[in-house]
Amino acid sequence: MSNVALEIRALRKSYSNGFEALKGIDLTVAEGSFFALLGPNGAGKSTIIGIVTSLVSKTSGTVRVFGHDLGREVQEVKRNIGLVPQEFNFNNFEPVAEVVVNQAGYYGIPRPEAWKRARRYLGELGLWDKRKDMARTLSGGMKRRLMIARALVHEPRLLILDEPTAGVDIELRRSMWEFLQDINCDGRSIILTTHYLEEAERLCRNIAIIDHGRIVENTTMRSLLAKLDTETVVLELRAGAQQLPAHDSIRLRHIDELTLEADINRGEDLNNLFQLLDGAGIRVQSMRNKTNRLEELFIRMTQAAESGGLSARGAS
């Protein structure tokens, strides 16, 4: 069992108002993996994380963390997990360093050692200079990093981050990615939820997609991306094009007057795209790959799971 960080079987959760947030979840996260848990708003990601971290009680099912059963060995489960929750949950009126040092204390780490670790992790996350400031005076991005430092202070084998980069600027996000990758290289398993699919694509080797309390996909990032049978490029035109030429394996559509998108089947040469455009007298000023390839897959999958689609619930 020791090579499985998290094993969830038949997990169900009905909240006290009767709402069934999880309808039988099965999930296995191997030790050492960097795992993405994706899903639209309200899919049940935070509910799963809440159950695993003892903040939400489960209705039925089993959860094991490094082989320890949540029902019978909750202390061992807790010792092995570090949580960065979706919402800020530290005491706003405590100085930054105390937030981290106190958390170490709850795990039984003596003060001198707790301070050493606070220094290390706050330092690595660029917050050591802020250690004496009240937590509430930090910026949003700093607060997220404070919660990361707090989650690491007892050096857990499994780090769970619920939307750690929400509201974090691009530069900082990149440095957080590097930080998390380093941590993962040290052998720590990481589970991450995010609405930035680029983030999942960059960081995670394994991925599960959850929608309406059910896992709709659970695979490696590589095999998921392999399902993408088309590549999309965005073309900026010199002049408006009236008629778009048709082609078997290249589909063109207007985004606006001077912008086209082209879906190109896998295996098709790009040269054919330009021949096609040339033939129609369309002159291209610039071309770029459409980012967030994962996004398309994601939308397709969650739409397949329920025909209503995402738009009503506003996935970001």
Partner: peptide, 17 residues
């Protein structure tokens, strides 16, 4: 206030009995 500000969660996730 630890419930209200949610920092009771710091204790709940930790192994403190």
């Amino acid at each position: 206030s630890s419930k209200f500000q949610r920092h009771i969660e710091e204790l709940l996730v930790s192994p403190v009995p």
